[in-house]
Amino acid sequence: MAPILEIRDLSFTYEGAQSPIFEHLSLAVEEGSHILLKGASGTGKSSLLRLICRLASPTSGTILYRGEPITAISPPKLRSAIGYVAQIPRMTDGSVKENLLLPFTFALNRERRKPDEDALRRMLSDFYLDDLKLTHPALKLSTGQQQRLALMRTLLLKPDLLLLDEPTSALDALSARMVFTIMERLNTREQKTLVTVTHSDYRPSGAHVELYLLQNRTLTRQP
């Protein structure tokens, strides 16, 4: 079976920059695995995630999602299948519920079944947000709470593959631990494939964890 995500000979140069940030990267991500991407700041880890969900275009190389080049998939469809959660969570000026149901207001997702309030409350509880009311203004939440909401919102679209860009970098230790636990649960219990960019020394549990280091423009697998 084809890997869920395959990167072939990928190079990327920032607009206006002289030299590439990375070049000739190749990586195959098997379904159900958890890839941890590490590396110093500025090595292009976040750019790699952005290339996968087409928020930027590579200088050369190919990215395949389930064997199909991502450029052949309609961008909204691709981005609904691949859940990308940015480093800094963004909320709109509305309630928790409005933010969680935001994806269902877009044409592509309008046909999907919206979760009801009970389902949303259960999910909040799973994400250690038991005390949070659905009517609470989302912009007034702490970054840690917003990060978990952003993750929930992405998961409501039931993506097969999750791209997490330093999901805990803006969080205190307690919130970070909660997010790590949620990530492990998603991978081991719900069999979601995860690609996580992280700076921390965190090493998740799970049978299919693979660690990669991005440095000197190349990607190498770590023991």
Binding site: P76, R79, S80, I88, T92, L108, T154
Partner: peptide, 16 residues
């Protein structure tokens, strides 16, 4: 920019 990209990543078309 980040808000627009957040919506794009949740399946919005560029118009939405």
């Amino acid at each position: 920019r980040e808000l627009v990209e957040m919506k794009l990543c949740l399946g919005a078309g560029y118009r939405e």
